[in-house]
Computed example of a mutant assay.
Amino acid sequence: MEDIIKFDTISQYNAFNKQETLHPLISLVYLDKAAPRQHRKLHYSFYTVFLKQIYCGDLRYGLSNYDYEEGTLIFLGPGQVIGQNSDEYYQPQGVALVFHPDLLHGTSLGRKIQNYNFFSYSSNESLHLSEVEKQIILDCFAKINYELRHAIDKHSKHLITANIELFLDYCTRFYDRQFITRDTVNTSVLEKFEEHLNSYFSSEKPLKLGLPAVAYFAENLHLSPNYFGDLIKKETGKTAQEYIQTKVIEIAKERVFDKSKSLSEIAYELGFKYPQHFTRLFKQRVGVAPKEYRLLN
């Protein structure tokens, strides 16, 4: 029994789901038409979006908090794996939009695909849709499906990718709405982030591990780095990296008053590998170098 089922091409995924291939680089797969199957880990070499109902067992994403129950969108970038192995059988449901990176070459979408951070969110950071939002998504799918069934002409690639781009832009708007409607949850994450920051810099971790990366706090808060970064940006107006740097400078402004320590010692204690990097960041944020700040105050 193979541990992971890999799909390198769109046609492979269509065959797995007993669906006709209308285009070699993109497909809308209606999963309820597929045969019942066992739970398996699945690896996709292309972009994959699932429109599912809450608690659909075939993805096993374990939702714990959601806003709407009309549908859930789960995004996977090329190379991601979802699911788990089990002897249990299930009937897949929902719709999958799958498209290969090669489809995007030379298109507007190809130039901005990296801006859609939700393709690297964890599956439990899914987008939960209202009824109106779900209908908009289905309308986008219908336009893509129309183009797939239309005879290929000089307009096909542009219209297909333009409709995928429209769909993803709507998803960006809906995620922004979700960040707002989850304000209580987001505030809790921000508070925990602040606690972790204070704890990190009050320990010896900066001296041992250096300056903390965004991924360090995302992992401690059980979030993907991109979702965590987008959440912090929406809540504070700063990137997570900027927020960390602000905290570093706040602490540094206090510690430079301790004249029993050299500025180099303070830099190392804050996690800087080189004192000159500390000086550069401090001057950039405060307007004067640490030495001048110490003398001025």
Rank of each mutant, 00 (worst) to 15 (best):
F75I: 08
E133R: 05
G62A: 12
Q12G: 07
K6G: 03
Y89C: 05
F174E: 02
C140M: 03
G237W: 11
E191W: 05
T246N: 12
E292K: 11
D230G: 05
I74E: 02
V288F: 07
H150D: 10
E235W: 07
I232D: 03
L129D: 01
S202P: 02
Q135D: 13
K291T: 09
G271Y: 05
P92H: 04
Y44I: 05
S108K: 12
L76D: 04
Q80H: 12
N163P: 03
M1P: 11
D139R: 11
G77S: 14
G271A: 08
L97S: 00
L159K: 11
L59N: 00
S188C: 13
F141S: 04
R285T: 12
S123H: 10
F119M: 08
K261W: 02
V189A: 03
Y44F: 14
K154S: 13
L281F: 06
L211V: 11
H43V: 01
P92F: 01
Q53S: 13
A267H: 04
Q53G: 12
A218N: 08
R111K: 15
R255F: 11
L190C: 13
N186R: 09
K234F: 11
P290C: 07
N14K: 00
R255L: 15
Y216S: 08
L296P: 00
L51K: 01
A96S: 09
A142I: 06
G237L: 15
N115V: 05
P36A: 09
R40L: 08
R111M: 12
I160C: 05
A162T: 09
H196K: 13
